[in-house]
């Protein structure tokens, strides 16, 4: 029988058609379990404990903000391509100093690809440094207090973005490093900077200079006891002090300075005053 101009089926083996449909329906019913398992595994791989942030279903709010082309891209499985295209367009908003548009686009991109560390990292830079600095130097705002408030607003937004990025990527030392820089140089919070760099330092593969950054920040925060404990722990962490990449001379310098400042008794010093170059640890 001819159904319409596009589909044609023969009259002969109607059983074959029924069997084909039965095969598709039975498999259609059974495949759901496999698909659900694949989706579950994919979610865990993508987000670990943070499944809700980045699992595939795209929220209604996100849909409404995407253009038709972007939506088709998502449907076509081109989520990364769409995210990249949106990201590439961000410098236009940045050049026009439309900071809320920049922030909104960053939110959209990071929603689409929460596991892409560079989006969080560079996005926070756009907000906490570029937007914040522009607001601080805003020639149209007479009030210095207002400029300061605006700058602080964008710096905090960049900080919040990094915290969200870290929720999605807890193993990223790059984001902790960036957060430490932001806390230290923009928000002038050395305690928070030390905490962030300490987290970065804990992650395998992070730069070794971070161990010194933590000590410097603790000193900057005038947390002398904590700083001394940190430097001392670093010094005692290795029996050898010959690896030039760890800059033991700088660590020794800070230890000596703090032992003097804290008036550490000789028997507890790493560098006793009586035999200065030799150390107890060695």
């Amino acid at each position: 029988m001819r159904g319409n101009s596009d589909i044609v089926l023969g009259t002969r083996p109607i059983r074959a058609v029924a069997l084909a449909l039965l095969l598709l329906v039975v498999w259609g019913g059974a495949k759901g379990f496999w698909e659900a398992r694949l989706a579950r595994e994919g979610t865990v791989l993508r987000d670990g404990g943070l499944a809700s942030l980045a699992t595939a279903p795209v929220g209604k709010e996100t849909w409404s903000r995407l253009g038709q082309g972007a939506a088709i891209g998502l449907l076509g499985g081109l989520r990364a391509v769409v995210a990249n295209a949106l990201w590439i367009a961000i410098p236009d908003a940045w050049t026009d100093q439309e900071w809320f548009r920049v922030a909104s686009d960053i939110d959209l991109v990071t929603t689409l690809q929460p596991r892409s560390v560079s989006f969080w990292n560079d996005g926070s830079w756009y907000l906490a440094w570029n937007a914040s600095q522009r607001k601080l130097e805003n020639p149209f705002e007479r009030s210095a207090a207002r400029r300061r408030l605006d700058a602080d607003f964008w710096a905090r937004r960049g900080e919040a973005l990094l915290h969200r990025g870290l929720e999605a990527n807890p193993g990223s030392w790059e984001l902790w490093l960036q957060l430490g820089q932001l806390e230290d140089q923009r928000l002038r919070d050395p305690v928070a900077a030390a905490a962030a760099w300490r987290e970065a330092w804990k992650i395998p593969g992070s730069p070794r200079y971070l161990e010194r950054f933590v000590g410097y920040e603790l000193e900057k925060a005038q947390q002398w006891d904590e700083a001394y404990a940190w430097w001392k722990a670093l010094w005692l962490s290795s029996p050898e002090h010959t690896d030039r990449a760890r800059f033991w001379d700088k660590i020794a310098l800070r230890l000596r300075a703090l032992e003097d400042r804290l008036q550490v008794p000789d028997e507890k010093r790493v560098f006793p005053r009586t035999n200065a170059p030799q150390t107890r640890a060695q």
Binding site: G28, G32, E35, A39, G42, A56, G77, R79, A80, Q113
Partner: peptide, 18 residues
């Protein structure tokens, strides 16, 4: 759900590349 395959599972491709 029954008639269409889950092409969304291939979304893991983006994560592999990331």
């Amino acid at each position: 759900s029954v008639a269409i395959p889950d092409f969304g599972s291939y979304g893991i491709l983006d994560d592999v590349l990331a």
